[in-house]
Amino acid sequence: MIPPLPDLVLEPLVRAALLEDLGRQGDVTSRAVIPAAATCAVHLRARTPGRVSGLRIAALAFRLIDPGLKIGITGADGADCAAGETLMTISGDTAAILAAERVALNFAGRLSGIATMTAGFVAETKGTQTRITCSRKTTPGLRTVEKQAVLHGGGANHRFDLSDAILIKDNHIAAGGGLERVLPAARAAASHMMKIEVEVDTLDQLDTVLRLGGADVVLLDNMSTEQLAEAVKRVNGRMVTEASGNMRLARIAEVAATGVDYISAGALTHSAPVLDLGLDIDG
């Protein structure tokens, strides 16, 4: 069970999206064609099967437009859904429902798409110790909810921001004077609570890291499957291993079979297709 994010975190994101969509005059279409006292009941349904995420955010969009709307969430974030399945019912003022519709669907469709893609990657690791994790390649402003969607898909979260952990990448190594300088410098700067990860793209670099010590995690970047297997053998449990770069769905099973601890895939958040959801008015 993934603990839900509190409304205190979600509300600023939803408010910003609603303000963007309402513009300067609000929903001029509904104001022109919907009778002032009109009410209706609608169903938010999945049009394709997938893994659900973002229902609480969608419900918040409706509540912020009209707290008087009656909302029943019948699906569950983190659960699979079938095509045609009803995930939420909303009833009350018609114009209010229509004003929140697009924002609600944008959030739920986007986040369910991330959860669905993550679940597909996770399924490819079955029978191994390997976990799927995301990256910081997220939509600006939406990192918190997109990483929550990865959890709903059965994945794990990498660092949320630059302050979470020390991650020494190739540019840090080049600009910082090489592994022999940056690894000791990182260890000297890190508190006892701070993890250090270092990126390598060759087995020779990995050997240097193993010789120098000081890293908790090694990121094995853009290596072949054969190189990854050899890297895991050389590490031999002395560091957590993470494979990254060119991690397509078709490759996940063979990479997981090398014994790496984690596979990180930026595609989970930057390339996941939206899950097709729709809002249908009764009758």
Rank of each mutant, 00 (worst) to 15 (best):
A185F: 03
D170R: 04
A189T: 10
R181D: 10
H192W: 14
S163G: 15
A185Y: 01
F160N: 14
H158P: 02
L179Y: 08
L183Y: 02
A174R: 12
H192I: 14
A189W: 10
G177A: 13
S191F: 11
G153P: 00
H152Y: 10
N157E: 10
H152T: 00
R181H: 13
L162R: 09
D161G: 15
L167D: 03
H192C: 12
N157I: 09
S163T: 14
H192V: 13
E180Y: 09
G155L: 01
L179I: 08
R181Y: 09
H158L: 01
G155M: 03
G176L: 13
G176E: 11
K169S: 05
D170A: 09
P184D: 06
L162N: 07
L183C: 08
D161F: 08
L179M: 08
H158N: 03
A174I: 11
L162S: 07
G177C: 12
A186W: 03
G153V: 00
H172C: 05
I168A: 01
A156R: 05
K169Q: 09
S191E: 10
H152L: 00
D161T: 12
D161A: 15
H152V: 00
A175M: 11
H192N: 11
N157F: 12
R159G: 08
L167C: 09
H152I: 00
H172E: 06
H192M: 13
R187F: 06
A185V: 07
A190R: 05
V182Y: 03
A186S: 09
K169N: 04
G178Q: 05
V182A: 02
A188Y: 10
R159T: 03
G176W: 07
A188I: 13
P184Q: 04
D170M: 07
I166F: 15
G155E: 01
E180T: 10
G153W: 00
A186K: 02
R181Q: 14
A175S: 12
G176Q: 12
A175H: 04
L162P: 07
R181S: 11
G178E: 01
G155I: 03
A185K: 04
S191M: 09
D164V: 08
A174T: 10
